[in-house]
Design a protein around this nucleic acid. Structure first.
Length: 420
DNA sequence: TCTGGGGTCCTAGGACCC
DNA sequence: TCTGGGGTCCTAGGACCC
């Protein structure tokens, strides 16, 4: 039987900020989403103040001021780099690692005899190497490892490491009964509501539910969750990330945008970002979609324009993709609306080597793929945005709001911390 | 003064075709 | 007179995650 471990950074973004601001030890910290919109991370002290996650910032601004909470805009250059370092440290503790998100990964710890001390060594290594606190949860399925991680976080008596087999079956069930069904990985708000109506309230109730009944009422995904809660691993550890089937780049503007040139520049920017991700997974896209929308929270005329256009050949070429995207944008733009968000989506994604023969249209120029590779390398080596399309524009007043961003301590030379 | 994230996959339903 | 299947593709919206 396999054993999975889930390791994640506690309040990861807030912890990253604190690494470079030791003066904030023990102080409440929150980190905001793009555009300083919502609260996305809270230090333990901020959670204790009752600041909820994912609330718009302006709704908790008073509370933050009152308790002198330190507020940061999100600094993805910093978190991304800290994440790479953390994953690197964690990779030493298992033969197989699946990076699941920026702050968490699964490890295959099957066959390790002393899981307790292994878990504590993991925590210590990340703490010593990066100064980030972590928790480790272990179990015989990914879903149980996730839940074990939850236990490690919520119950200080376990010192940040928990494994289900340390309890006898009766004790384990008693603990499962203490978790609401909505806390189980894969069970969101809507499914939790439906389960509650079926008298399934806790993780234990779901574990003991009839899988066939669950499959009938929901789908195979929820059925799998039931099996996973029973210790039957249905979800394998994905050592290499599977190629994405769709790639989205989208963002809200810092202010409402009316004019076509600004929209056009932002679409060019999203095409460049999405195409870069596409090339990173060695793929080409056959379809590109463009979406522009008004602000649904405002009492103004509402409009969501969306269309997608097929490409003659599947492509990963930013310039070709951008031509298609700009045509799509012109087709959906209506001058009477003020726009709040724009984005592109790449679909019909397949390996870049896939090439259909077409008598009537010329094949793409091989020089262009070398150009794209050169652009990617420059942006990788010298920071993203080092080289970009002229079409992305030089006026950037619509770009996102980041009024409280910390320095890029680890990725920009001028921002390196200096000791005095 | 005003402020509300971003990304991925799944599914239901409609259109169309044989 | 009335009825009638099943597959594929596409899209919008739903659901989930962090």
């Amino acid at each position: 039987m396999s054993t999975f471990a889930l390791v994640d950074g506690n309040s990861f973004y807030a912890s990253c900020e604190r690494v470079f601001r030791p003066d904030l030890a023990g102080r409440p910290i929150i980190v905001l989403s793009n555009n300083d919109g919502c609260v996305v991370a809270r230090s333990a002290e901020a959670k204790a103040l009752g600041i909820p996650a994912f609330l718009p910032f302006y709704q908790v601004q008073q509370l933050c001021r009152k308790h002198r909470v330190t507020v940061f805009s999100s600094n993805y250059a910093l978190y991304g780099d800290m994440s790479r370092r953390m994953m690197n440290v964690l990779s030493r503790f298992a033969p197989v690692q699946e990076i699941y998100s920026i702050d968490e990964c699964f490890l295959d710890v099957t066959g390790i005899t002393d899981l307790d001390s292994h878990g504590h060594r993991i925590r210590q290594a990340v703490w010593q190497g990066l100064g980030i606190p972590t928790c480790v949860g272990m179990g015989s399925s990914k879903t149980l490892a996730k839940l074990a991680n939850h236990v490690a976080k919520k119950r200080p008596e376990w010192n940040g490491v928990f494994e289900w087999d340390w309890l006898n079956p009766r004790e384990a069930d008693r603990l499962l009964a203490e978790f609401a069904v909505g806390e189980v990985w894969g069970i969101g708000r809507r499914i939790a509501e439906k389960l509650t109506l079926m008298n399934i309230h806790s993780a234990l109730d779901l574990k003991q539910a009839d899988p066939r009944h669950i499959k009938r009422k929901f789908n195979v995904v929820v059925e799998r969750t039931v099996a996973e809660l029973n210790g039957v691993a249905c979800l394998a550890l994905e050592d290499v990330a599977p190629a994405k089937q769709q790639i989205i780049s989208s963002r809200s503007f810092s202010r409402l945008v009316r004019d076509l040139p600004s929209l056009s520049a932002s679409i060019s920017h999203h095409v460049a970002r999405a195409a870069e991700k596409l090339r990173a997974q060695g793929c080409a896209a056959g379809l590109i979609g463009v979406s522009i929308r008004t602000n649904p929270f405002r009492d103004l005329g509402q409009y969501h324009g969306y269309t997608c256009v097929p490409l003659v050949h599947p492509s990963a070429d930013t310039l070709l993709l951008n031509q298609a995207a700009q045509a799509a944008l012109r087709a959906i733009w209506r001058k009477e609306f003020s726009y709040h968000k724009a984005g592109v989506i790449l679909m019909d994604i397949g390996p870049a080597t896939r090439q259909q023969q077409d008598m009537f249209s010329p094949l793409p120029d091989p020089k262009r793929s070398r150009l794209m590779a050169a652009i990617d390398k420059l942006n990788r080596d010298f920071g993203s945005g080092t080289i970009k399309l002229g079409a992305e524009g030089l006026t950037e007043d619509w770009r996102m709001k980041q009024e409280k961003k910390s320095p890029c301590y680890t990725t920009r030379v001028g921002d390196i911390v200096q000791l005095r």
